[in-house]
Every structure is written in structure tokens, then in C-alpha cells.
Simulated assay, not measured.
Amino acid sequence: MVLKKRNIEGYKENYGHVIVIGGSRGFTGAPVITANSAVRSGAGLVTLYVEDGIESTVCSNILEAMSCTLSNDIRLKKLLKAATVIAFGPGMGMEKTLNILKYTLVNSTCSMVIDADGINVLHKNMKLLRGEKIVLTPHLGEFSRLTGLDIEEIKKDRLNIAKEFAHTHNVVLLLKGHRTLITDGKDVYINTNRNPAMANGGMGDSLTGIIASLIAQGYELLEATYMGAYIHGYIGDELSK
């Protein structure tokens, strides 16, 4: 893993614009964690889009990221076109997520990292994905819903099932868990740094922000995903001491 040296004359436009779309009533923390993780791992700009009723709550918990509401259609369409990468789904709930995901896919052409309920609504809707520019980051429960396979069945052959899924749907897949798997259907990486102290809410949201940030900074999707998993786990290991 080789992190690129940042240009001493670089400025924020050199390091990409991450759009985070997520959040819902009762789940305002998840998109905030994603946005803050994207900022702190080096993205040049970060904008967080949430539903109208929670923007004030979200704004009180972000400093360097910008915010806007999903109802601001003109600004949303403009930024979706200009975004380097979109992180979609943290804390979003299920009610309107599928429609918002469809809207996002129609109005953007950049890479996407899809997590949480963004993954859950893809069950029976995998044809929505355009391939080659999509990272999916499910845990076992979400992956079970995506594949229709029981969790125990997946556990017996995680590597091959993950690899086949990524190949079939032309996505980069990060399957969370002990020994997280990252694959594009051809190459497979296994992340070994992780510890039980990381078993709490918000860890996946943080990982989504780190991966999106690395993509925004110019890393290829597979590279950004396995590097993000390693950095996330390494920080967790260090802090747990």
C-alpha cells in the first residue's frame, strides 16, 4: 500500500469533492460520521445532503463540511454533476431511499460508495447499478439480503461467494467482518487488522467516508477500498491500546 504524497502547492480542488447523501430522523449521527471521516482523511471538499427536518441537527456537528437539503433540487443536481464521488446511504432508513438512489444514479456519472440502507434497497434492484464505478460495503446481514443466501451459508464460503458476486455485478465489494474481504471479482484482498473494540455503531459509517475520500483523491476504486479498510482497521487497533 502506497499513499501518494500531497503536492506542496496543492489546494482543495486537487483533492476531490465528496457528496454524502444520508441521514433520517433518529439517525443523524451516521452521515455526520461519514462526512467528518471524509474530511479528516483528506478530501478537498465535502458536502452532506440530508432531509429538511434534520439539517439543523447535522449542521451543529460538522465544521469543515458543507450541508444542504435534498429538497434543494437545483443545487443538488448541480453538485451531483460536479462531484468526484458520492457516499450514499448512511443512516438513511428505508422509506424514501430507493427513489433517492434512482435520482442520484440518473443525475450523476461519478463513482459511488453505497452503504447501509443504500445496500438494503438494492435487493431485487441490482440492475440499477451501472457497474465499474460502484463500491458496496455490506456486513453479513446486508450481503445475505443482497444474495438471498443464509448468513451461515455465506460464512462457509465467504471468499468465493464474494468474488462471484463482485464479478457478476461488476462492482467492488467489501464484505465486512473478521478478516474483511475486498474484491473486484478478480483480485481478492483480506484485511487482518481489526479488533473487538471496533464493534460498535458508526464504524461502518467512518469506513465509508474514508473510502470515498481516497477515491476523491484519485485512487482507483479497488485500491481505495482495500487501503481504506486497512487505514480504518489500523487506526482502530492503535486507539484500542
Results as ranks from 00 to 15, higher is better:
Met1Leu: 02
Val2Ala: 06
Lys4Ile: 12
Lys4Cys: 04
Gly10Tyr: 12
Tyr11Ser: 12
Asn14Val: 13
Tyr15Gln: 09
Tyr15Arg: 07
Tyr15Asp: 15
Gly16Ser: 05
Gly16His: 07
His17Pro: 05
His17Cys: 08
Ile19Thr: 15
Ile19Val: 15
Ile19Ser: 09
Ile19Gln: 00
Ile19Glu: 12
Gly23Arg: 14
Phe27Val: 00
Phe27Gln: 05
Thr28His: 00
Pro31Gly: 05
Pro31Leu: 02
Pro31Thr: 12
Pro31Tyr: 15
Pro31Met: 12
Pro31Lys: 06
Ala35Trp: 00
Ala35Cys: 13
Asn36Cys: 04
Val39Tyr: 00
Ser41Ala: 05
Ser41Cys: 15
Ala43Lys: 00
Gly44Phe: 13
Leu45Ser: 12
Val46Ile: 00
Thr47Met: 03
Ile54Ser: 01
Ser60Ala: 12
Asn61Lys: 15
Ile62Phe: 03
Thr69Ile: 11
Asp73Gln: 06
Lys77Phe: 12
Thr84Arg: 03
Ile86Trp: 03
Ile86Ala: 02
Phe88Asp: 03
Gly91Glu: 00
Gly93Trp: 11
Ile100Ser: 04
Lys102Tyr: 12
Tyr103Phe: 13
Leu105Pro: 09
Asn107Glu: 10
Ser108Met: 09
Thr109Met: 08
Thr109Gly: 03
Cys110Arg: 04
Cys110Pro: 11
Ser111Glu: 05
Met112Asn: 01
Val113Pro: 12
Val113Ile: 13
Ile114Met: 03
Asp115Ala: 03
Ala116Lys: 02
Ala116Phe: 04
Ala116Ser: 08
Asp117Glu: 14
Asn120Ser: 07
Asn120Pro: 09
Val121Ile: 12
His123Ala: 14
His123Phe: 12
Lys124Tyr: 13
Met126Cys: 06
Met126Arg: 10
Lys127Asn: 14
Leu128Cys: 00
Glu132Thr: 14
Lys133Ser: 06
Ile134Leu: 07
Pro138Asn: 03
His139Cys: 09
Gly141Pro: 01
Phe143Ser: 06
Phe143Arg: 06
Arg145Asp: 11
Arg145Gln: 10
Thr147Trp: 15
Asp150Ile: 00
Ile151Cys: 14
Glu153Gly: 02
Lys155Asn: 09
Asp157Thr: 10
Asp157Ala: 14
Arg158Ile: 08
Asn160Ser: 10
Ala162Met: 01
Glu164Lys: 08
Ala166Pro: 07
Ala166Gln: 10
Thr168Cys: 07
His169Thr: 06
Asn170Phe: 06
Val172His: 02
Leu175Phe: 00
Leu175Thr: 09
Lys176Leu: 02
Thr183Ala: 07
Gly185Thr: 10
Asp187Cys: 11
Val188Arg: 10
Tyr189Lys: 14
Tyr189Phe: 15
Asn193Glu: 15
Arg194Val: 06
Met198Tyr: 04
Met198Glu: 09
Ala199Val: 08
Asn200Arg: 14
Asn200Thr: 15
Gly202Leu: 13
Gly204His: 08
Asp205Glu: 11
Asp205Val: 10
Leu207Lys: 05
Gly209Ile: 02
Gly209Met: 10
Ile211Lys: 02
Ala212Glu: 06
Ala216Arg: 02
Gln217Val: 07
Gly218Asp: 10
Tyr219Gln: 04
Leu221Val: 08
Met227Tyr: 03
Met227Phe: 05
Met227Leu: 07
Gly228His: 09
Tyr230Glu: 14
Tyr230His: 11
Ile231Gln: 10
Ile231Asp: 08
Tyr234Glu: 13
Ser240Asn: 13
